[in-house]
């Protein structure tokens, strides 16, 4: 069963006079347990695509399905299903954690969502679940009473991951999860994402401009340029035999250590 299906989806921003087409005629099918990397430059529509999948943006034209059912932002029932099974990790862990909440409150917050009530498998004991996910992301229990500013960038991204995983989502969306982190911390967070996606059987959609990260983490890749999906395929295939000149350019732009 496919998790997401996009059929000729376009997203346009702005009024009648000046409008920008962020996505143009995108077709994409994401199956369960696949790991997708969406790559492209700033302004290519990566984040818009992710917002579409998170139900934060509606297509201007075309259709979007979620577990083979049409997704309509105005219909409460379909949205409840989406909201209760999709979680997101953002690029900047400083901006995505409320500075006035303790870590325990931040991680427990998604568990309080009324949209989760329809689901049978939601953890009942919130405090126990918070302990569980903090342990899963490798943070000490003493972190619970602290505030976000008391953590480093890498630790904050772990907290954001713990929050995303607390309600046992089926799908994890990640918007440049490691690009705000430096190289030495990046490996930790990527290992963690890989382990968690494996052990929890998640479907992953990750937006990034770093092809090395995609090659390591994702089994499928989609290349966006000016809102169009110009190349889609298995990661190894696309990276070793890119069909589009643009994909080649992206691959060659990666600075390598071998001089």
């Amino acid at each position: 069963m496919s998790v997401f299906g996009l059929n000729d989806v376009s997203v346009r921003f702005g009024g009648r006079r000046r409008s920008v087409e962020a996505l143009r005629g995108v077709d994409l099918v994401i199956e369960e347990h696949e790991r997708w990397g969406i790559v492209g430059e700033s302004g290519s529509g990566k984040t818009t695509l992710l917002k579409l999948l998170a139900g934060l943006e509606a297509p201007t034209s075309g259709s979007l399905t979620f577990f083979d059912a049409a997704l309509d932002l105005r219909r409460r029932e379909t949205m409840a299903k989406l909201r209760s099974s999709v979680q997101m990790v953002f690029q900047d862990p400083r901006g995505s954690l409320d500075p006035r909440m303790t870590i325990a409150d931040i991680v427990a917050e998604p568990l309080r969502s009324p949209l989760l009530r329809g689901r049978g498998d939601v953890p009942r004991d919130r405090a126990a679940r918070v302990d569980e996910v903090l342990e899963a992301v490798g943070l000490d229990r003493s972190a619970k009473s602290l505030y976000p500013h008391e953590f480093s960038g890498g630790q904050r991204q772990r907290i954001a991951l713990a929050r995303a995983l607390a309600p046992r989502p089926k799908i994890l969306l990640a918007d440049e999860p490691v690009s705000a982190l430096d190289v030495s911390v990046r490996a930790h967070v990527l290992n963690l994402v890989n382990d968690l996606v494996d052990s929890m059987g998640l479907t992953l959609v990750m937006v990034t401009h770093d092809l090395a990260v995609v090659r390591h983490t994702c089994d499928h890749v989609g290349v966006l340029r000016h809102g169009q999906l110009v190349e889609v395929g298995a990661t190894g295939e696309v990276m070793d035999h890119p069909r589009q000149a643009y994909t080649k350019e992206l691959i060659n732009a990666v600075a390598r250590l071998d001089v």
Partner: peptide, 18 residues
């Protein structure tokens, strides 16, 4: 530092050195 920076040296999906 060199090992963590060389993501492309690690087989996809395997644990990255830290």
């Amino acid at each position: 530092l060199v090992a963590t920076a060389s993501i492309d040296k690690v087989r996809p999906g395997e644990r990255l050195p830290v």
